[in-house]
Design a protein around this nucleic acid. Structure first.
Length: 305
DNA sequence: TAGGCCATCTGGTCCT
DNA sequence: AGGACCAGATGGCCTA
């Protein structure tokens, strides 16, 4: 697992600065995208962000309520977020474990030979990160020196750690302090992993990956990713609908290939697409029946409508 | 200077 | 008991 160095922290600050400079550009890009969608669909887009939180910032969300040009059916696929919410509601307390979503080894994937804690004493990285007193994780300690000293001083002032007078209580408090530092290190590593995952998410979100463009904030990344997924789902549904429509049209025209569309057999079907495909088959059968009847009654007069 | 975003610390809760 | 997760608090950095 990659760790941020203090230099990277500085870079992050630079990026933050650059991103703010380009925030207007990003907003403009998304506004243009929305206008494009509205022009195509003739509908007024609503921002997912606005709908959910009442936020008026258009730069963080893509419109997923608007549909693609080919949207003849009013039937909407079940929204993925509904499924996610259902799943979350089914799991009380702790969030879904990473293993349940195929990320079981996420936290301990830095070295395949390193078993997960508490048996990872032989792994330098893990051991060092869980030992704040260790000099192994240099940049992290440097970071601790820069930022966390203030917090530690503050926390000791708040009475979170420390206190006591005798030698026993002194060693006890020292032990408690070490425990606290270990917890802090773990939490820090957890947040770094979370940020790494967010960076990876940013890298696959279609926004301008340019040094002059503002780095997406965490909330913007999540909202954009969610809307991007919804948009992809809508696009897929439209594509399936279009394929079904084309099949129906071609079949009705009697232009279907002899073997049918075998190459599309493996195409994953949604209920809507399946229904349309069935309709297309029925229509093709009816057309073929009509054609045969017509050929009996008046050969050469049957025309595909 | 206010506001946004972030990193970190911290205590609590839940799970294994 | 230990670890993961979470939310609140706090302060730093940056921009408008």
């Amino acid at each position: 697992m990659r760790r941020r160095s203090s230099d990277e922290e500085d870079d992050a600050g630079i990026v933050r600065g650059a991103t703010s400079r380009a925030s207007g550009e990003l907003s403009r890009l998304w506004r243009l995208e929305t206008q494009h969608q509205e022009a195509l669909t003739g509908t007024t887009a609503t921002w997912g962000w606005e709908a959910a939180r009442g936020n008026t910032n258009p730069s963080v969300a893509m419109d997923t309520s608007s549909s693609f040009p080919f949207s003849g059916s009013s039937s909407q696929p079940q929204q993925p977020q509904d499924l996610v919410q259902q799943q979350l509601q089914q799991v009380p307390g702790r969030r879904t474990p990473l293993g349940a979503v195929g990320l079981g080894g996420f936290y301990f994937s830095s070295s395949p030979s390193c078993p997960p804690p508490p048996n990872n004493g032989s792994c330098p990285l893990q051991a060092d990160e869980n030992r704040p007193e260790s000099a192994g994780s240099h940049h992290q300690n440097q970071q601790m020196g820069q930022r966390s000293n203030q917090h530690q001083q503050r926390s000791s002032g708040m009475g979170g750690i420390g206190g006591g007078g005798g030698s026993v209580s002194k060693s006890k408090s020292r032990q408690g302090k070490m425990v606290r530092l270990n917890i802090n290190a773990r939490e820090r590593r957890r947040m770094h992993d979370l940020n790494d995952a967010l960076d990876e998410l940013r890298s696959v979100i279609p926004y301008a990956h340019s040094p002059s463009v503002r780095k997406l904030s965490k909330i913007a990344t999540l909202l954009l990713a969610k809307n991007f997924i919804l948009m992809q789902a809508n696009a897929l549904e439209e594509l399936r609908r279009l394929i079904a429509y084309l099949q129906q049209t071609v079949a009705a025209a009697g232009l279907a290939p002899a073997g049918g569309y075998a190459d599309l057999a493996g195409f994953p079907a949604t209920p809507t697409a399946t229904k349309l495909q069935q309709q297309a088959q029925v229509a093709a059968t009816a057309t073929a029946q009509r054609s045969s009847n017509a050929s009996v009654v008046a050969p050469g007069t049957a025309s595909a409508s």
